[in-house]
């Protein structure tokens, strides 16, 4: 029994600390590295992802930000990861690092912990929920208010849209905004259309998955 347990426990002991230090070596100051190591190790023990902390530290250093402000930003990311994890647990999703990272991004973009919980309660599989959270964060970054945002992503998750279709929602909103609608009105219109489609099936010619990949994000 002990021999069998030794393998995973050895893997566990090999995991985080060395990896964090290795990724930060030469990129951030020793003080920031020590902070990330500490927050990463404690967070990892609670099932939180470490990558967002490392990325924020490297980003701050690359942008020439003073150490104290980088440290503050890293602490903020740690807080958002904690909040996202708690919100997902409240919604019934056990530890899933990708979903937690996506939830933390959604909070950065302007959604609340309650919004994250609402999306988790839709009951989608963790992989679909992760995509939904990323899309919700992107919609928030586009200026879609939380109510319309959560309604649109929730109905899309409930109707079983594919990840590729979910990823097209921001482009769909941008397209409506380009026609003169506000982001809120664009999202509300898309929600109604998705709900009707869920009730009656897709309109003629729209039953198949869209053939093209996610659109590039910008134009010159």
């Amino acid at each position: 029994m002990l021999t069998l347990l030794a393998v995973p426990l050895t893997l566990l002991s090999m995991q985080q600390p060395g990896a964090i230090a290795q990724r930060l070596a030469g990129r951030v100051s020793p003080n920031v590295a020590a902070l990330v190591e500490q927050l990463g190790t404690t967070g990892s023990a609670r099932g939180l992802p470490v990558d967002p902390l490392i990325q924020k530290a490297i980003e701050g250093s690359a942008k020439g930000i003073p150490d104290d402000r980088v440290a503050a930003a890293v602490r903020m990311v740690a807080t958002q990861l904690d909040a996202a994890a708690a919100a997902l647990r409240e919604g019934g999703l056990a530890s899933d690092t990708l979903a937690v990272a996506a939830g933390a991004f959604a909070i950065t973009a302007g959604l609340s912990a309650n919004d994250i919980t609402a999306l988790a309660r839709v009951g989608a599989r963790p992989q679909a929920l992760t995509v939904g959270l990323r899309v919700a964060g992107t919609l928030a970054a586009l200026g879609v208010p939380p109510a319309e945002n959560i309604a649109l992503v929730s109905v899309s998750l409930r109707s079983g849209k594919s990840a590729a279709d979910l990823l097209l929602l921001p482009a769909d909103v941008e397209s409506e905004v380009a026609k003169g609608l506000t982001p809120a009105a664009a999202a509300a219109g898309l929600s109604r259309a998705a709900a009707a489609q869920a009730r009656h099936g897709p309109p003629p010619g729209h039953g198949q998955q869209r053939p093209h990949p996610p659109a590039p994000p910008h134009h010159p």
């Binding site: 924020k56 942008k63 930000i65 980088v70 990311v77 991004f105 950065t108 973009a109 970054a141 994000p217």
Partner: peptide, 24 residues
Amino acid sequence: RWVPDPGAPAVDDGFGRRNSVLTL
């Protein structure tokens, strides 16, 4: 000069600037 992509959604970077977001 760090410049966000004018054609993409953006979020606060935590340092007083904006980061562009790409969701694939």
